[in-house]
Nucleic acid binder design. Structure first.
Lengths: 217, 217
DNA sequence: AAGTGGTCTAGACCACGAA
DNA sequence: TCGTGGTCTAGACCACTTA
């Protein structure tokens, strides 16, 4: 890493082989392998058999974001966490949802609208749909005191997840809940979760105006 | 991973020690170590000395995003890439920038405004500031044909980066460039880059309305 | 004090892929 | 064909953390 940062190994250059570097640094080849493998994972190097290891020309760098439970995120900021269930209905999945999740038409789903507060002020509106064919237990779960995400996290062993971020204008319902004017730009997170290929839940999170998601690497 | 997905090892449970698993699976301890280390990096496990390895309560806690060069992102989408330099000025850093980058007041900076197009349509407005004390070569670089990011990537060996994402209303200048009404919600990326502790550049990217950043894991 | 993961070594064989 | 990285082994010692 030091040699990369100092420009001793320049973009596009080919590095010595693992065996050579092991001799250079006086360590085992396995140690060189681990170091270079980690640098490749972080996006600094390209490794190919036979061809060798090269410094990436355009580092396709990766940013990592922690996706904490909303309660932890708020409490980590020093504010008190508040939760309220705004609406709860079940019925057949609307067409756009069935298409998005790959559900059969009319599949039973649970629809929840929740509000998360930080220090008394609205922080995030959660608009969630749960597939009752996959998770029938959700039908009888109590979401009046704790949010569905906390229940889901404790219930589902593991999932595939797709996340999308975008900027959207506040609609009338979320404008009312967040206390802003309709049309105000909101940072929106969409998250779809599968369990063993079965769609479990789709959630749309709309953050309060001015919300910012950051990372450093 | 299979045992986690099947729920054999449940959230919060403690796994056997590395030595035990090596016996169970009939492999070397180093192999178990690598597997569990990778699962911990991916956010599924928590590992602590003496205490052992536990399944994370909130198993999905990190999202990784590729941050490609804008040109590659557009060309990967099958559209033709277009670039235009809108404005170029240099002078002393404005107060907010000096504070943000930790510059001394009046430090010389280069200010660039660029437009990136995809298939002829405006895709992204780039508003960039470059610290000329750190990168005096930028003063004579030609940004009329290629964007500053491509030049920077080829010039700087390595950097620390801070990235922030937010939703903002379009101001008059970017509304004009992106062809949308002022106030339209835009997905905005802020990125600050350091080289060996020295601030190099701050860039604000405003994407066309409807832009969505996604990842899957 | 003791148990756990963290790391390294020296060696081996394998899989990929360019020539 | 053969050089490169990919992976695994058996063993060793160390560092951190809790009891």
């Amino acid at each position: 890493m030091a040699r990369l940062a100092q420009g001793i190994w320049k973009p596009g250059a080919t590095l010595p082989t693992e065996a050579d570097l092991a001799r250079t640094y006086g360590c085992a080849r396995a140690t060189v392998n681990r170091a270079m493998r980690e640098l490749a994972e972080e996006g600094f190097l390209d490794r190919r058999r036979k061809t060798g290891t090269q410094v990436r020309l355009a580092p396709v760098r990766q940013a990592r974001f922690d996706i904490p439970l909303i309660r932890r995120e708020i409490e980590a900021g020093g504010a008190g966490y508040g939760y309220a269930l705004i609406a709860r209905t079940d019925g057949p999945a609307p067409g756009w949802l069935a298409e998005r999740l790959g559900l059969s038409p009319g599949a039973p789903v649970l629809h929840l609208v929740c509000l998360h507060r930080a220090g008394g002020a609205a922080f995030q509106v959660e608009d969630r749909w749960i597939n009752l064919d996959t998770l029938p237990a959700a039908r009888t779960a109590d979401f009046s005191q704790t949010g569905p995400n906390e229940w889901l996290v404790a219930t589902i062993p593991f999932s595939d997840v797709e996340i999308g971020f975008s900027a959207v204008p506040a609609g009338a319902p979320e404008a009312g809940l967040l206390g802003c004017a309709p049309g105000t730009p909101l940072f929106q997170t969409d998250r779809t979760t599968w369990l063993n290929g079965q769609p479990v839940t789709f959630v749309r999170l709309m953050h309060r105006p001015g919300y910012r998601m950051t990372t450093r690497y």
